[in-house]
Amino acid sequence: MSLVSDLEQLRELPSPPMPSLWPQTWGWALVLTLLLVLVVAGLLFWRQRRKTNAYRDAALAELDVLEAQWRRDPVSTAPLRDIPELLKRAVLNRPGNPAPELARMGGPDWQGELQRMAATPLSETFAESLADLAYASDETLTRLDAAAVIAECRQWLETHHDPV
């Protein structure tokens, strides 16, 4: 036999099978399962938090609209007069069952409730400013620092919590 005939008898070897992409040990399957559980738990937590804070987001969006209306026409007091009602609706629409007496609360009791729910202490003039927004004449409201009141309302809406 010659070298040429020996070379002609050579055949190409078949390729080995592709390795499986699935883990070969149970440890990796456990890690993947735990990772999947963590992702699902995180998504459920995120969804619940969004659902819980939906009332807060709606109130902040409405406050943005009221502020934009007021900034377009600073002489008009109508947008400012809606702010106390907005805060009351935010308290009454939060998750859980708000106490029925909250709906009937007014004056110093209501201001005290807002103060208890605030994450940071409200200014001493906040209660008076809200009372002015609800009941004072238009002339009184023109002298009010509306931008500061709106900013404090925004801070309260963003950071308030249920009193314990």
Rank of each mutant, 00 (worst) to 15 (best):
D73F: 10
E8S: 13
A147G: 08
D132L: 13
R71I: 08
V65F: 08
M117I: 01
D109K: 13
V65M: 11
L43W: 14
A127Q: 04
E85H: 04
L92A: 04
F45N: 11
W110K: 05
P17E: 03
Q111F: 08
W26I: 14
D138A: 15
Q69E: 12
D64Y: 07
V149D: 00
S129D: 14
D82C: 08
R116H: 11
L66N: 03
L80P: 10
E158V: 15
A146I: 04
Y135F: 12
M18S: 15
P108R: 03
T25F: 09
P108C: 00
L157T: 10
N93G: 07
L35A: 11
S15N: 07
R11D: 02
I83A: 02
A41H: 10
S20C: 10
P163C: 05
L21E: 06
A59I: 08
A146Q: 08
C153L: 08
L43H: 12
L122V: 04
A147P: 02
L114T: 00
R116P: 10
A29G: 02
E128R: 05
R94H: 01
L21C: 08
G112F: 01
R56C: 02
E8V: 04
D73H: 13
E85S: 08
L21W: 04
W46E: 11
N53M: 05
Q115V: 05
E62I: 00
M105I: 06
P16A: 11
A118E: 03
R143A: 11
P98T: 00
V37Q: 11
D109W: 06
L80K: 06
E113I: 04
L66I: 02
T140A: 06
L43M: 14
R94E: 01
P98G: 00
A146D: 01
D57W: 08
Q69I: 04
L43V: 13
P84A: 00
L32Y: 03
V164K: 08
P95D: 01
L144K: 07
L34V: 12
E158R: 15
C153I: 11
S2F: 04
G96N: 04
L133M: 05
R116N: 15
L114M: 09
R116A: 14
K51T: 05
I150H: 00
D57H: 11
E158F: 13
R72E: 15
E124A: 15
H160F: 12
Q24P: 02
L34M: 07
Y55K: 13
W22S: 05
M117G: 09
A148P: 03
M1T: 10
M18N: 14
R47K: 14
R11I: 12
W70S: 14
G42E: 11
D73S: 14
R154G: 03
E152R: 10
P74V: 08
P79L: 02
L36I: 15
I150T: 02
P121M: 06
A134S: 13
Q69Y: 07
V75S: 13
V75Y: 08
G27V: 15
L60M: 11
